[in-house]
Design a protein around this nucleic acid. Sequence first.
DNA 1: TTGAAAGCGATACCAT
DNA 2: ATGGTATCGCTTTCAA
Lengths: 350, 350
Amino acid sequence: MAEKTRSKIVSIKGARQPVTSYDVARHAGVSQSAVSRCFKPGASVSKKMRDRVMKAAEELGYEPNAIARSLISGRSNLVAIMISNLTNLYYPEVLAELTQRFSEHGVRVLLFALRSEADANETLQQIWPYRVDGVIAAAELSPEQVGEFEKRDVPLVFYNRHLTGSPVSSVCCDQEDGARQLVDGLFKAGHRRFAIIAGPPESVVGVERKTAAIERIEELGADDPPILEGDYSYESGFALAEELMKHKKKRPDAVICANDVMAIGALDAFRVNHGLNAPEDISVVGFDGVGPSHWKSYNLTTIRQPVRRMTEAAVTMLMAMIEEPGLPNEKRVFSGIFQAGGSAQFETGN
Amino acid sequence: MAEKTRSKIVSIKGARQPVTSYDVARHAGVSQSAVSRCFKPGASVSKKMRDRVMKAAEELGYEPNAIARSLISGRSNLVAIMISNLTNLYYPEVLAELTQRFSEHGVRVLLFALRSEADANETLQQIWPYRVDGVIAAAELSPEQVGEFEKRDVPLVFYNRHLTGSPVSSVCCDQEDGARQLVDGLFKAGHRRFAIIAGPPESVVGVERKTAAIERIEELGADDPPILEGDYSYESGFALAEELMKHKKKRPDAVICANDVMAIGALDAFRVNHGLNAPEDISVVGFDGVGPSHWKSYNLTTIRQPVRRMTEAAVTMLMAMIEEPGLPNEKRVFSGIFQAGGSAQFETGN
DNA sequence: TTGAAAGCGATACCAT
DNA sequence: ATGGTATCGCTTTCAA
């Protein structure tokens, strides 16, 4: 038996050498290829062989080396998730869902938390060497950056972003529709003096929410709303609500915020600093449906994103693209779910 | 020149073969080892060689393959982060900090979000094949599971957990001290009827907070507090506060909650359902110092965990253990920072 | 079904 | 400083 000679140097420091498939093969008295086959689902192995190998593997504590497997097979079973703003209350749930779902597909998650959307380039440089099978991007990417994916044939699915005019796969929540629902309900309840606390200009989602709201307000014939730009934080919601109160003559009676956290900040500002309570004195609505939107002190009227369905879609899409390389891109848009709260005078229905 | 023959099969589907160091070597007219060296920091290469290789690499769009590198070098530059409860408001910040800090060390993060602490075994099985250089565990592990790390010589640092009586490295916040501070301040302000809304029994951190609070209350000679067990959620805080109100005869005047989110739930229950406002009618304190603890509607009195320092310590420790295998274990305990809020009658100082 | 041998794309070591 | 070669641990033909 011409067994390959292996110069296993017994470590001086007592670091145990991990058991390899060769060790298992020798122990079981079979070939190394046989061992490999036993760990490959759907390979052709006799029951006898499998039992023997598994027993040997068990005894030696063999654990297949995913790195070596990746190298030869060309599949790392790794996906990267890029998230630009992890501390945004909305993302932890998304991230947890995504990792758990990928896990069910035998795929592990490399996490990249960008400090800012500007980190994307550096992050991509960190991603490429690992030869990930695909990427979920909950971060803004430029057309050039998207081009880098195509160049490398790395499947990409945007989460709640998209490149308008570019055929990239994405899973989104219909921001325009949500914004219209909010404006309509507020209008129907009698509101005419709207104000908008928008997201940062670089947030596509925020811009969509803002723009759609403005358009709808205009369509309905209400006055042009003042528009203030925040950064999605509680503090900015609070500060901008203050700002709105400065112009005593035309204070708004309905404030549309680009996310729940700013809406919460606004509610606090109105109540604490001005004694204005929602929904009696002023109406405030948000977007997302994050956990705290349900807290009794706020009880937000908002548009909830169907996170479970969206993450499921994202994972399914990416896995399909990985398994079937030629697949055409696809955009999936989910409607937001109106979440009736008590922070606004609001009328639904026709 | 006896160049190794490589059977690069041009893909039928048009998937580009990634450029390898051999391609770069050929293009630059140098050896493959030379290319490798040029990408290894601190290797001995002449400027001329480096320029030539880098130019060739640039032209071909070469990107080193981290997988191949890991296989031969025995270092994956991967660490796993296990988090049991990502949707706990406290963890996203921790996770973001950790990944960013590791990133600065050239280390990437494999994320494992456990559905429950019971998932740990399965998660470990998923981790081992990737030959991670180390693990940060913000999840409960049994002594047997910790033993698996030792068996494999995989460095492990617990974050906010530890195995009492076991010499595992960890970074923690001093829960006992924090609990004492809270009890003392409440006591000094005149409170005598305490109640505790504790965490789930499997949470070591929660148990420590609870136990230390009880002990201190006893030391000070106040009545034994009722103890209710929650699950760290807003809803459980809310529900347990309700529970406390049922026993009209001896309603507490100070409620110590095992985390901020439950404290927030309790505050809402007291206010909304019973018209009790903090701090006038009742005092409520929490633990953690999460973002919402600062929200004006709650303005919690709590013990903030020094997340930046703790994550920095965790990363530093793990990196040291990775780079210097024999290193002894170390436990680092940070004091929580008292965060004065308006949710409790409280007196600090001597 | 099984085994032998050829890589995957790097690093490490040893000459030169 | 540079090149040659063995090797990491596995999957994948290809024969038997």
